[in-house]
Design a protein around this nucleic acid. Structure first.
Lengths: 295, 295
DNA sequence: CGGAGAGTTGACGTGGTTCAATAGGCGTGG
DNA sequence: CCACGCCTATTGAACCACGTCAACTCTCCG
């Protein structure tokens, strides 16, 4: 299922890439970028469910998402999967394999995507000559670690609603940086993937979305999301737990909602406010500043 | 509470350090190590509860534990702490600050410890000249990321008993690599810290220890631990969840244990088998191979 | 000995899981 | 165009692993 990379197949230069302000090229001036181009292998299209690399493979490369979206996950001895991250265009993954020289994780596309393969050894040798590139690689990995710490906090301390709010806010910021709407986007992943990543079940995710919808914080229809109260969502994402006497508790929690508002069915939302926004976030748009940490 | 570092205070060389085979020096031959010595600031003693650095401080350095043990944690907006890792002698922490140039986490000593402060910018400049050092830094950060993925799995998917088994096995391996007993050691951290790190409560940790004790997998008395059935512990640490019909379920779970063995009190263990082993793991012992990923 | 902090144990509540049934989305084929 | 199947998502109800609250005990240390 592998090897979607045509070696030496770089029709496009990193200097023209729409994600050059988010990805590796930020660390390099124009005359150095062609050295990067000489290393990087631009990928063919990768369809939903196809692997970029798999658990146990030798570590040779890191990967930059070019379009679409991917997820990374590890598999335990029983074959249980756990998703460790979602990556959007311009974000880089695969660093976890450096330490042991073999990947301990898997990367698969969540939708039709493209990714750039960056052989690590040549990259490291280039970084040896270009201090700014070395520095940037350290920064990228540092960001990954800082992000992982936040995810750990979420998994360890936050309640379901806060975990989901955290994820939505993270996606919101990252879409925003990419010049997409930060308040209205299409979730790249299924409920199942969200649940897996957040350490919840699909049902809990579904119910929590319902609660956030009822509380008028978000409007969600399938994977189409509209954040109608970003301030409240942000607030939720920062809390450890929502106390039962919180003004939103009625709408947010199952145990309370049963004895409260009968509430319209979740699918009765105004589709017209949502649909026009439904641009597939796949490609295009000139990028902005340096990416904030992913998720 | 800060600045325990006397600048230029390096009485000892990294080349004589007992952790040179685990720490930064592994990447360098003897003639390069003095360059490291010129950068590194060996610390004064840091007592339990004292900070190496705190949330919000400018990022300037990473830290290597020299003796004792430390924990890193982040603090959310409500002041809730979440421990993100425990570090033993020879292990390095602080990488999370690289990306944003300011620390997003805190490091405090769990017992009287010493640590080496490694200013990052000089280190990076040194790495620019010494490829093996650059490579090793990438490896260290890669290991941290791979480790974080495993912790995420634990927090997201494993039940209390499996999380605790995972932690104990991790400590076991890391003590083993440092030439301490891997089957009998003293926990460097409190029940509260374990609970916090694993996303549990102190009470659940206590009960789970009790269960593992009753199942004769471990013997624990306060912080003194004896792993009497390493194979079972390892097995537990690999499972997502222990099924109710598992042979050990009787001893492991509260809900079952209530209707099962009345069990002797936890403190009725043979203290003589435990106490002689109770060497504070603080210092000494020539180290072995390259450290496996921490936790 | 006495007081404080750490750890254990019990009883009970609850957030989230589990199992199960139902509903919507979408491609295929008639 | 609708019918059908398949997959994803929603909703409901019962259960349980863990959290919460509250004693109580042990250990350490002055």
């Amino acid at each position: 299922m592998q090897a979607p990379f045509a070696p030496g197949n770089h029709k496009h230069s990193c200097s023209e890439c729409q994600h050059r302000h988010l990805c590796l090229p930020v660390a390099m001036d124009s005359r150095d970028i062609h050295k990067l181009d000489a290393i990087i292998q631009r990928s063919k299209v990768i369809h939903a469910g196809e692997h970029l690399y798999s658990d146990g493979e030798n570590f040779t490369s890191i990967f930059a998402v070019h379009s679409g979206s991917i997820k990374t996950f590890i598999i335990d001895t029983d074959g249980v999967e756990h998703i460790t991250g979602f990556y959007l265009p311009g974000e880089i993954t695969g660093f976890d394999g450096i330490g042991s020289n073999s990947h301990g994780s898997n990367v698969v596309a969540m939708e039709t995507s493209t990714a750039c393969r960056i052989p690590f050894q040549p990259l490291v040798e280039l970084a040896q000559k270009i201090p700014a590139l070395q520095q940037h690689l350290f920064k990228l990995m540092g960001c990954q670690i800082a992000t992982d710490f936040k995810i750990m906090f979420s998994l360890g301390k936050q309640k379901a609603a806060a975990r989901i709010a955290t994820l939505l806010v993270s996606l919101s910021r990252r879409f925003g940086v990419r010049n997409y709407s930060s308040l209205s986007y299409r979730l790249p992943m299924s409920r199942m993937d969200i649940a897996n990543f957040l350490g919840l079940t699909l049902e809990t995710v579904s119910r929590t979305f319902g609660g956030l919808h009822r509380a008028n914080i978000i409007h969600i229809h399938g994977r189409d999301l509209l954040i109608s109260d970003p301030a409240q969502l942000e607030k939720l994402s920062l809390t450890e737990a929502v106390l039962p006497d919180h003004p939103l508790a009625d709408a947010l929690f199952q145990h309370v909602s049963l004895r409260s508002t009968p509430l319209r069915p979740a699918h009765a939302i105004e589709r017209d406010t949502l649909r026009p926004q439904r641009t597939s976030f796949a490609i295009s748009a000139p990028a902005a500043q340096l990416a904030t940490a992913n998720s």
